[in-house]
Design a protein around this nucleic acid. Structure first.
Lengths: 334, 334
DNA sequence: TTGAAAGCGCTAACAC
DNA sequence: GTGTTAGCGCTTTCAA
């Protein structure tokens, strides 16, 4: 299994190994006939360039670290797909790391990635504390944060306009005739605060009463959404629609409603947020606010790419526009 | 942003840089007092070992290539999660590559990974042709195939016992009183042939008539399942249960049945295969055959690990046992 | 126990 | 246009 190196090829071609290197790198400093002869020879000998050695001298690995709390999360895996594809198109490869469940591990993987000499890091923060958690490293390598709003932190990130998203959702419910809309969400993260803000703004605009139901669980999940919804539904339902802060929460609400015989959308309209893939399943068919995942991932990669290739300094906060996906969980009322 | 190297630390510590290397690698060839002094110093100076340089001399990168058709596929992303976690626990990192949609790209990414000097490759084949497609490379680096049966190919793989899975499903339907069971599946891949076999075996065992409905689409997906189901349901339904070859197909069937007012499980029982996460959604609640994803991924990583660390030759076909997940889409009949 | 030095495979600056 | 050579940051003999 001995690897064929540049030297081997050089020997076979009877040239110095710098010449082989030139032929392969497409340098202009070489005779086209020599070049072709060498390229052909490399092919015949089954030579594969050693990227590690190249990285060594170039001080550049063409590697991007991709850090997510958990790649099996639907939202993350979609982002990962687009990010990997886009990165590879730019000549970069992805090193994948799951950062969950705690800040310690998140920090550890970022450090590890640094040791691997990645040219940049793309990170979906696992918590609002992530920024501070890895601050020591963000000075050593270009980093772009993805999917979480960092608000005014001096770091580049790409996220959706969360406030606009919930505003859109609320407005849509209003246009359908709903006047009593409940916001169902988490308290903790910045993202959730921004989403609550959008709801609040729309309520003010349309003169609706603000009604919050805040989950005591820090993480949004189907299970948590379900538990909270059961609690919610034990009280009188004096509203006609629910705006959930995430699709997971919304699906949990759906489950609770099904069990309790509360018809959605007959009795209650429901809107989620994220547009994860499952929401489009026929039996779920959840009306929701879409995060433009393809665009988010692509923009994040290109932002990072720009930092790496051009050494662009400073930071940019890229806020993408969400769109409402109308499906079957909302109905018009009078 | 100048990186601190061994040399810098050595200079500061007033020792040769070999000594620093020894201190860090936990060599016994060093005075414990020197070691501690150096380790402390490394910490203070914020030294991070350069993995690329180490790889260079060790001729080992501690990197595993992970190739999947598309990471946003639920099944794949679950495997990826477990694989990454397990690999990292063994000191390896994952380079992620999407191989879809064609064999050309699959081959390209494997070649790329080789150039990256990965120590091994874990691959979820995108087609039965994958084996031949990348054969040129499987001699150059340890490779473990994941999730597809390669049958008698002389390559290591980890897969579920597909035949047993459908056998289990058929048997379960039989135990529920079903005597007319339709198998709904793809033709192309080995996996699907094996799944069809399991159905066939169970039919023979229990004296049932074999009834196949084969999709003309090569890929299983909700959309394809739906289209085929619409076609299927345009003919008389003279069976009481459907055994679908995948969860995606099953969910497509569910959609078609919903639209046509065919009650599941009232009129028709339905079983899927894979137990992808969506099947557990409250409104889907699909009875299905589980592939032990955690075990599959872990075993595959450890198999690869064994090949890498111990240079284990030969190949092993690891066939894992599927289990039936009873949920809400099957009912007892008389 | 420590230091000196070779070399991993490659790129790039410098000669010719 | 092509060859020579000096490293990139590290591990690992070999000497001391």
């Amino acid at each position: 299994m001995k690897n064929i190196t540049l030297k081997d090829v050089a020997k076979a071609a009877n040239v110095s190994y710098a010449t082989v290197s030139r032929a392969l790198s497409g340098s202009s400093q070489i005779g086209s006939e020599t070049r072709e002869r060498i390229i052909k020879l490399c092919d015949e000998m089954g030579y594969t360039a050693n990227y590690v050695a190249r990285s060594m001298v170039k001080k550049k690995t063409d590697l991007i670290g991709f850090v997510v709390p958990s790649i099996d999360n639907q939202f993350m895996s979609e982002l990962a797909y687009y990010a990997e594809t886009c990165a590879r198109a730019h000549g970069y490869n992805i090193m994948l790391c799951n950062s969950g469940p705690d800040l310690k591990q998140e920090k550890a993987v970022v450090k590890l990635l640094l040791g691997r000499q990645v040219d940049g890091i793309l990170i979906c923060p696992q918590s609002p504390k992530t920024f501070e958690n890895i601050q020591a490293y963000t000075e050593q390598v270009p980093v772009v944060f993805l999917s979480e709003n960092l608000r005014d932190h001096p770091q580049s990130y790409v996220a959706v306009d969360n406030t606009k998203g919930t505003y859109l959702g609320t407005e849509y419910l209003y246009s359908l005739g709903h006047r009593d809309i409940l916001y169902f969400g988490q308290r903790r993260s910045t993202t959730h605060q921004l989403r609550a803000d959008g709801y609040r703004k729309a309520c003010q605009k349309y003169g609706l009463q603000e009604r919050f139901f805040n989950s005591t669980y820090p993480q949004s999940s189907i299970e948590n959404g379900y538990q909270m919804a059961i609690e919610l539904f034990s009280q009188p339902i004096d509203y006609t629609a629910i705006l959930a802060s995430t699709d997971s929460n919304a699906i949990g609400i759906l489950q609770a409603a099904d069990e309790l015989g509360i018809d959605i959308p007959g009795r209650l309209s429901l809107i989620g947020f994220d547009n994860i893939w499952s929401t489009s399943l026929p039996r779920i068919d959840l009306t929701t606010v879409e995060q433009p995942k393809h665009l988010m991932a692509t923009q994040a990669v290109e932002m990072l790419w720009d930092k790496i290739e051009n050494g662009t300094q400073g930071y940019v906060h890229q806020i993408l526009t969400p769109t409402l996906i109308q499906r079957g969980t909302c109905r018009k009322i009078d």
